[in-house]
Nucleic acid binder design. Structure first.
Lengths: 333, 333
DNA sequence: TTGTCAACATGAAACGTTTCATCGTCCGGA
DNA sequence: TCCGGACGATGAAACGTTTCATGTTGACAA
């Protein structure tokens, strides 16, 4: 087996406690002894056993990351940033998928907590069963709130607001909105922000106002495609000239539906997405979308989990509108 | 702190060894005692401490998963399947990204091994510095080979072959190929298979044969877009009527380049991808591609890592051609 | 009654750390 | 010369398991 701290102590002619203090680096230890110990460590290639240390300290240097589905580009991006930052600090990331199933989430989190992680970064499912895990483990939720826990998220209302504002300012009046699942706070916030801007418009331009057409589904490609078809299969006179979505995946699905139905983007239809996943700037046309600063979110979440200061209630970040090719002014009727 | 096995023992009036045997489930232990112990476990809500157990057994129930970039849909898909299967067996997955940097890979794997994982699933980088880790940890590589380790991968040659065969049978003669980085075995195998089919065609139809135009770059979207532009900015007379790529990401980048340049797919240009990532069937038009059975690959890799039988040298899986909308016969000149 | 054996529980050691109370040594001051 | 302290090393305990050699019990045969 690998050499242990005992071997080092014996070989260097000191006690294990001393070796441990050398490793801890910061304490009072005689210079001669320190160098001798360091030399023997080098000589026999000693590597501390993390398990022993973790047992003693009753905590590990592992961070749990729980997401609905790592296949979702948004969460993949989050995972990448979390992992990069964590490994730079000497932490490792334990990954778990919940598939948006509260039961699975509970299960996953329970086994995760059994491993005594240094902290937990969690994207909770819609109606999570998990609310009592504050105790003992520093936890930060990302993107979606969970009562009693710190939340790192973009200001979704503001995001929806920006989308509506952009479409209105381009001159669109017949507007559609593809919402996420009504049960999630994220969805309703985005939609609320969107509608708030529209309401404000009605106040000032009552005459021109046309109530938006709203449909609702999941955040994924498929849902965007189906709901898109639903919105687009109207006669051109009533069909929206612009549709905003609550995720880029929906927007890309919508793009595909439009393509299938011969509706040209952006000439016949403007589209605004949400998230700014990498793919958004690669589809054809490039997607105008509301960007979430994921790198920043990952940084804040990790800082919250590892930092020593008390956790804030909420870290709200500002979304920003990315103008690309999928929006233009509506063509004259 | 949480109750320990000692608390259980004390409360149930037995020794810790007995409790341990009850937990191990399989051994000889008196029925009355077993039920009493189980009752007290239930009563005080005892959960075994994984750290203690791991230290004693000198191994954990963690599986290391090392990929170049979790943001790549192919690896995300792999991670999802690995994680699902692993957690069903009671294992957890530790995620690490290498960003295709040999140094980072070495670093990541070293810290991972320090955690004494039950096994390691590795997608090695191009010229990996890691070749001595067979010792001690069961390791399976996926997608790309690493000398001395078991490999789970699709038959890349066959994949390239299928792509070429499909394009030829549609009637294409002026064919382009976007290869992955020449340094990777995966790339060269796919290209070899592709060219082998073309050579076979030359044998039989010498007169019609036109040498393929081959360009080479990374596997990502951006590369596909750039190389695509390069191939397409020729006069229509010499420009390929069909292009095969070595990844779906390249193909999607190519799709975008074609769109930008007014080249219609599939009318003016047929495209074949490789991998069949979820997105492939959502772009416009849907991508004809060579499918890798990722779920199967994840299953085999995990089985190899956790199974007790000796590891095979190689597990080769068969790719399959997915016919979708991005290919058709070339239009008359 | 005694001896043997099976069945099963027990206690202690071991895994590799960290930490804390203790102890030795050395130096300066009285 | 002796004492008090400072400095720093030591040894042992503790973290929560598993396992193994040992011990205890009871039943049954002789």
């Amino acid at each position: 087996m690998n050499p242990t701290i005992k071997d080092v102590a014996q070989r260097a002619g000191v006690s294990v406690g001393t070796v441990s203090r050398v490793l801890a680096k910061n304490k009072t230890v005689n210079e001669d002894i320190r160098t001798k110990v360091e030399a023997t460590i080098e000589a026999i290639g000693y590597r501390p056993n993390i398990l022993g240390r973790s047992l003693r300290l009753a905590k590990t240097d592992i961070i749990g990351l729980v997401v609905p589905d790592i296949t979702n580009p948004f969460f993949a991006e989050l995972a990448k940033h979390v992992e990069m930052l964590a490994s730079a600090e000497g932490y490792s990331v334990l990954l778990a998928n919940t598939h948006d199933d509260p039961e699975a989430e509970k299960q996953q989190i329970e086994t995760l907590l059994g491993r005594l992680p240094a902290g937990l970064i969690l994207v909770p499912v819609s109606n999570s069963l998990v609310d009592n895990l504050v105790i003992g483990t520093r936890t930060v939720t990302v993107d979606r709130p969970l009562s009693g826990h710190a939340l790192v998220a973009v200001d979704n209302r503001q995001g929806g607001y920006l989308a509506a504002d952009h479409l209105l300012s381009l001159g669109h009046r017949r507007i559609g909105y593809i919402s996420g699942p009504g049960t999630t706070e994220v969805s309703s916030e985005r939609r609320d922000g969107f509608l708030r801007r529209l309401d404000a418009f009605r106040e000032t331009h009552g005459g021109e106002y046309i109530a938006p057409q709203i449909v609702e589904g999941h955040f994924d490609y498929r849902s965007g495609e189906e709901l898109g078809k639903q919105l687009l299969m109207q006669p051109a006179a009533t069909r929206p000239t612009a549709i905003a979505t609550s995720s880029d995946q929906q927007a890309i699905g919508l793009l595909r539906a439009a393509g299938d139905m011969g509706v040209r983007v952006p000439n016949d239809l403007s589209i605004v997405g949400f998230d700014d996943i990498p793919l958004a700037s690669l589809v054809q046309p490039r997607l105008t979308t509301i960007r979430q600063p994921i790198d920043e979110m990952a940084r804040l979440a990790l800082e919250g989990v590892l930092g020593s200061h008390a956790l804030e209630e909420e870290y709200k970040l500002q979304p920003v509108l990315m103008r690309r090719g999928s929006c233009t002014s509506p063509s004259a009727p």
